[in-house]
Amino acid sequence: MSDAYQEREIQLATGKVHLLEGGAGDAIVFLHHSWGSPGWLPVHDSLAANHRVVVPDLPGWGGSERPAWAREPRDLAILSGRILDALDAESLTLVGAGFGGFVAAELATMRSLDALVLIGAAGLQPARGEILDQMLVSHRAYIEAGFRDRDAYAAWVGEEPADDVRQLWDFSREMTARVCWKPYMFNRRLAPLLGDVPTPALAVWGSEDRVVPPECATQYGEALPNCTVEIVEGAGHLVEIEEAERVAALIAAHVRNSGNGG
C-alpha cells in the first residue's frame, strides 16, 4: 500500500463505512461513481499534496456495509452527511463524480458545505437526451462509454478487466439498482431544492460525456445560484480519470476561491 493514504473505518449506527484518507489540510471528500471506488486515484493524490482527501466507499458499496433499507440516492446523501460529521473537519469541500455527484447535490440541499464540486454528475433529468442506462448494457460497455474513446478505456482498464475489477462493477451495480432503478439516475425533487443552496459550486464536465449529457452541467449551473461551469474539451464522463491534473487544479482553485484552503 502506498503511504500516500491510509485505509480506515467509521462506525455509524447504520453500519460500518470503509474509507481511504491521505494528505493534510482542509478536507475534500470525494464520492465515487455508481460502479464503485476503484481506489486511490491520481486526482486524489494531486489534491492530497495540499489537502486532507477522504474517499469513502458509499454505504452499500465496496467495503461499506449495505443499508438494506435504503431506497433512493437521498438516503445515501443522509448517510454521507453522517460520514462528513464523523470526519470532524473544520472546512469541508464535497466532490462527487457521476452518481457520487448526484448524492453530493442531494446532500448540498440539506447542510452547509464550504464548497461543492460536481463532476459529470447525475441527479437532474436531462432537458434533452437521456442518462446512459447501465442496466441495459454490459459492464464493459458501460465503463467504456465513460471514456472519451476505446483507447482511453483500454489504457486504464486493459484489454480485459481483471477479475477484481469485474467484481467491483458487478457488486456495485446491484446497489445502484437498489437505490436508482427508477427513475434512473435523476430525482425530479432535486432541482427545485437547489435554488436556495448558497454553497459555491463548480460543475466540471467532459465535453464528450456520453453518460450524463454535458447539458446537465448547464442545468446545474442554472439551478444552483452560485455555480461555475467548466467544460473540459475532448474529455469523457470520467474526466477526473482522463484529465486528473487538470481536474485536480480546477478543484483546488475552486476550494481556494471559495475562501478555504488558502
Binding site: 467495503g63 449495505r66 442496466m135 448494457v137 467484481q167 458487478d170 457488486f171 446491484e174 445502484t176 439498482a177
Partner: peptide
C-alpha cells in the same frame, strides 16, 4: 443478452466484500 438475463440483484450479491464466488454466482 446475458446482462439483461442476469440483472443486478436477481441473484443477490449482498456479501460485504465481493469474492470470486459471488461473481461466479452472479
Amino acid at each position: 443478452r446475458p446482462f439483461i438475463q442476469n440483472l443486478p440483484g436477481l441473484t443477490q450479491r449482498n456479501n460485504l466484500l465481493p469474492t470470486i464466488k459471488s461473481f461466479a454466482a452472479a
